[in-house]
């Protein structure tokens, strides 16, 4: 039997990695999207662990909803990226800096 804290460590580490991935990544917006996905998956992991630990289904139901919402969210994100690409022919993070003040 693996202690529950190990699972929680794993999910927190994944969460931190994804957060670092968003803030340290200076190249491509698509990589940011992937990091976001990782972040939500680490949270899902958290929910499943807690749900299992408590013997409660709510956690798993929550995971379903999170999955659908992030699917919708990444669909919108991809659509925004397509619009961005059409306007400036690049999706590099460095090129985004027209709004300043």
């Amino acid at each position: 039997m693996i202690p529950m804290s190990y699972y929680l460590f794993l999910s927190s580490i994944l969460f931190s990695i994804s957060l670092a991935g968003i803030f340290l990544n200076r190249k491509n917006i698509l990589i940011m999207l992937m990091s976001l996905e990782l972040m939500f998956l680490s949270i899902n992991f958290n929910f499943i662990i807690f749900g299992n630990y408590l013997g409660d289904l709510t956690g798993q139901i929550f995971v379903f909803f999170i999955l659908t919402v992030i699917a919708a969210e990444s669909a919108i994100g991809l659509a925004i990226i397509v619009v961005l690409y059409r306007n400036r022919h690049s999706i590099n993070v460095d090129d985004i800096g027209n709004l300043k003040g």
Binding site: M32, L36, I80, I81, L84, I96, L99
Partner: peptide, 9 residues
Amino acid sequence: SEAAIKYYI
């Protein structure tokens, strides 16, 4: 689109 991607992330 730039504002949208910033707000999105």
